[in-house]
Computed example of a mutant assay.
Amino acid sequence: MRQMIAGNWKMNGTLAGLAGFAAPLAAGVDGVDLLICPPFPLIGPMIAAFAGAPVAVGAQDCAVEVAGAHTGDVSAPLLAEIGASHVILGHSERRADHGERSALVRDKARTATAAGLIPIICVGETLAERESGEAETVVRAQLAGSVPDGFAGLIAYEPVWAIGTGKTPTVADVAAMHASIRASLKKQLGDAGTAMLILYGGSVKPANAAELLAIPEVGGALIGGASLEADDFLAIAQAAQR
Rank of each mutant, 00 (worst) to 15 (best):
R2S: 12
G7Q: 09
W9C: 10
G17Y: 00
G17Q: 05
L18N: 04
L25A: 00
V32T: 14
L34M: 13
P39W: 04
P45L: 00
M46W: 00
M46H: 03
F50D: 00
G58M: 10
G58K: 08
A59W: 06
A67D: 15
H70V: 02
T71N: 02
T71D: 01
A76C: 06
P77V: 10
I82V: 15
G83K: 08
I88D: 06
A96Y: 08
D97E: 14
D97F: 14
R106V: 01
A109E: 06
R110H: 01
T111D: 06
T111P: 02
T113Y: 00
A114I: 11
L117P: 04
P119L: 11
G124T: 01
T126M: 05
L127C: 03
L127Q: 14
A128G: 05
A128L: 10
R130G: 07
G133I: 05
A135K: 03
V139R: 02
L143N: 01
G145Y: 01
D149T: 13
G150Q: 00
G153S: 10
G153K: 04
W161S: 09
G164S: 06
T168K: 09
A175L: 06
A175N: 13
A175W: 07
M177L: 11
A183H: 01
K186Q: 08
K186A: 14
K187N: 11
K187T: 13
L189K: 05
A192L: 10
T194A: 15
G202L: 09
G202E: 06
S203K: 04
L213K: 09
P216Q: 06
I223R: 08
G224D: 09
Q238W: 01
A239I: 08
